[in-house]
Structures are given as structure tokens and as C-alpha cells.
Design a protein around this nucleic acid. Structure first.
Lengths: 220, 220
DNA sequence: GATCGTCTCCCCCGTGCGGGGGAGGCTCGT
DNA sequence: ACGAGCCTCCCCCGCACGGGGGAGACGATC
């Protein structure tokens, strides 16, 4: 059975584009569309899609609130893929925090969009804004430093959060990080939580993966 | 204050070599030597070293038993760095399982030995047999495939364990891995535990780091 | 002076994780 | 036929982890 998708975006053009891209796949079926966040809940109840591809910025009810509403009011809620125009959209982090499962740039290539929908449908998380990896590619992966710095800015990690992520990527526990930074473990937990939210990671392992994949830390 | 080290090895030559290498560092001090595992406990009680560099294969009491004994009978036990001649020494995994904090090949370069002692003293774990990284370097890092395969053999991961590690390195939880492999979560836990033990990793995060560092999985 | 962001620390709470055991079935090699 | 290794699943258990809140202190910015 195919993956069923509900498209939610205020721009018809975007909906049409997504539909075209997704319907080209034999295993993906677009079962409905909505133009604002408020229409989503009843549509989801009726259509029961596997995945909701949802814009963050919409009239009536934005993607964040719609995500919260879905997860709160619908049992067995669909997986939620947040779609956005802007690379550095803080609303996206809000949405991820609200329970969205993934992140997608509208300018992504069709193959990436399809890939994202499939991954989400499989129950996995897109753990890092695709933009970051793109960014690393754009910079030609010159060894990681420029790309890492840019990725940092993209994810808007503070200096302290960056330190913590680096230590996480060396395998340290919260307690060890606390000792190293000479602060309390509760403080470290705060920073770790902030890092996870900003990277869209579910746990420290995913955060470390993101650190490697983005070039924020380099292997070897 | 310097890092104090106790050397435990049945070969005087090895002890002398370690002493020479370590004493060359201003911040490291060798405070004692022992030729067998049985002598270790009283020496540790008296000298209270920060780090014990211990051979695995020794007369009277081997490194594994000595490690267990130390951790069981001494309060505030020292950090334990396991030293071995053979790259693929299953005794080492036993020792790590018994509570040793790190792993070191006798043929390692002086700088690596010093680095290992410092890391251990800082309270961190050497999470992956240094041999694996060396190995990756030996193979010239040809993209990771040959090195990864060799690293696999080095760590003696079974096929299933390799699959599990790969999924861990994609950020999947135990439950997600179980779903993916169509087995129970308890089974996945078994495999994960095996992977952690074989890699000398403390948790899945360290295992994933090891996977990246060894080239077992490639970023990008 | 007020506001914002960062860093620091605190509470409660559920649960996924990992260690410690064990055990049965399977294939393979001898 | 037997053991070895692997895969599978089970038990109990403690704890680090991560989410959800909140709050005070400081500096920069407005």
C-alpha cells in the first residue's frame, strides 16, 4: 500500500508542485490538500494520511500550532513534515519542538523531497535540516572549517552550546561535560536540550551524527 | 600536580620503555612498577596512582582479574589502561568489560601512549582500540570501504552486529532497529550490548563515534 | 530603565538504555 | 554426535537521559 500524504500550504503553486513531485512516485499518493492550518484537523480525521507536509507560515493557524493541535487531538496522528521557504527559519525549530518529525526546504530537489517523505513515513526522523548538508556541499567541503562555522550559524547554536556539542561528539556523558566545563550537570542538561531542539535531534546520538554529517566535527 | 602512573607488566623491558616514554613528560610521573597482577592491589593502596597501565597477560593474576580485584577492593580505584601486545586480543575486551578504561597497543608511538595516559587520567574513556584508527590510516583511507571492512574484522563484529551498528549510526532507537530488522527489542539490546563490548564503548553515542572515526560509516 | 539573550541551576517525571544474568534453536565444522 | 558460534528472546534492575516547567544573574541592546 502506498504512502498517503496530505499537503498543507497556503500557496496553490506550492501544493501543485509538491503534488507533481510526489505523485510521480508509484508508492506515494497525495490524498488531500489544505490551504491553512485550521482545515488540517478535520481533514486528517477524515483522510487519515500517513504524512502531513505542512508549511510553517500560514493564515488562521500556523504550522506550529497546527502541529500541536494534531498531536493533541488526533489519536494515531500522522507523521509531520515541516516545509519552509527560508533556510534559517526559527519557526521550524519551534515546529520540531512541537513534535514535527522532519524538516524540508521548498527549494530542495525533487529526489530529496521524495526521500524525505519516504523516510518520515517509515517512522524515522529527519534529524538535521537538509539545508545544513547542502550548505556543506555548497562550500565544497574545504575541510570542514568554513562549512562547520556556517552550519553553526545556521543552527544558531550559542558558543556554549557549540562547546557542549563538541564534547558530546567526543563521547562524554553529561556528568563528564559538567566536570570539564566546571558547571552543574543540570546546566549541561539545559545546553544539551537546547542543542537537541536546534538540531532537530531526538537524542544525543542523533546530535552527534548531525555534528559529523554537517562537518561540525571531523572524523580522524 | 602531575599524573601519577603505576606500571604493571611482567617484562622489565616493557616497563622500562613505558617509564622512559612517560617520564619524558613533565606532567606525568611513574610512581611504581609491578611484575604481576597479584602485587598490584597493595601497591595501589600504598601509592594511590591516578592511572594503572596494566598488561593483560601476566603470571599469578592476569590483567582481567587484577582489574576486577582493583575495582572491587579499592575505594576510589585508579583509572585502568590496558596494555597489550596483540592487536586482536579478546582478553582486552574482557578487561574492558571488567571495568578497564582504555586500551593501548605496545607498538603504539610514544605520543599516542602519552596521549592515552593523559586522556585516561582526565577521566575519559579511550573508546576505541587505537589499532582501528591506525588501520584506517594504514589503508590510506581509500574511501572507507576496505578500511571499514578491516575494522569490522578487527573488532570481530558479526554480520548482525554490523547491521545494528549501521542503524545505530543513522540515529535509530532500539525499538526502531527492532522494527527495521523485524525482531524483538530484547534481541536488539543483545546486539547493541555486544557491539558496545567489542568496541569498548560505554554507550551508543560512543559506538557511533567509533563507527565514524574508524570509517565504518562515512559522513556525507 | 526596560528588555532580550545567554548562562546558570532547580524541580518533577517517565522511559529508554545498558549491565547482569540465562536459555533455546540454528547452522557449521570436526 | 558433539561443541562452537550466532541469533533470538526473556528476566530484573539502576540510572542517565531527555521533556516540561521555572528562576535568578549578568551583559548587551534599545
Amino acid at each position: 500500500m502506498p504512502v498517503t500524504v496530505l499537503l498543507v500550504d497556503d500557496e496553490p503553486l506550492v501544493r501543485a508542485g509538491l503534488r507533481a513531485v510526489l505523485e510521480a512516485q508509484p508508492d506515494i499518493e497525495v490524498v488531500g490538500e489544505a490551504a491553512d492550518g485550521a482545515s488540517v484537523i478535520p481533514l486528517v480525521r477524515r483522510l487519515r494520511p500517513d504524512v502531513v507536509a505542512m508549511d510553517v507560515r500560514m493564515p488562521l493557524l500556523d504550522g506550529i500550532e497546527a502541529t500541536r493541535a494534531l498531536l493533541r487531538t488526533v489519536d494515531e496522528p500522522p507523521r509531520i513534515l515541516v516545509v519552509t521557504t527560508f533556510e534559517n527559519d526559527e519557526y521550524v525549530y519551534e515546529a520540531l519542538r512541537a513534535g514535527a518529525d522532519g524538516f524540508l526546504l521548498k527549494r530542495a530537489r525533487p529526489a530529496e523531497i521524495v526521500h524525505a517523505v519516504r523516510l518520515i513515513a517509515e517512522g524515522e526522523s529527519l534529524l538535521f535540516p537538509a539545508s545544513v548538508r547542502q550548505l556543506a556541499a555548497e562550500y565544497g567541503d574545504d575541510g570542514g572549517n568554513r562549512a562547520a562555522r556556517a552550519a553553526m550559524e545556521r543552527a544558531q547554536l550559542t558558543e556554549r552550546e557549540g562547546e557542549v556539542l563538541r564534547l558530546m561528539a567526543r563521547g562524554l556523558s553529561n556528568a563528564e561535560i559538567a566536570a570539564r566545563l566546571v558547571v552543574g550537570t543540570e546546566t549541561v542538561k539545559s545546553h544539551v536540550s537546547a542543542v537537541l531542539a536546534k538540531l532537530g535531534a531526538r537524542d544525543r546520538t542523533q546530535a552527534v551524527i548531525a555534528a559529523y554529517e554537517s562537518g561540525f566535527v571531523a572524523p580522524g
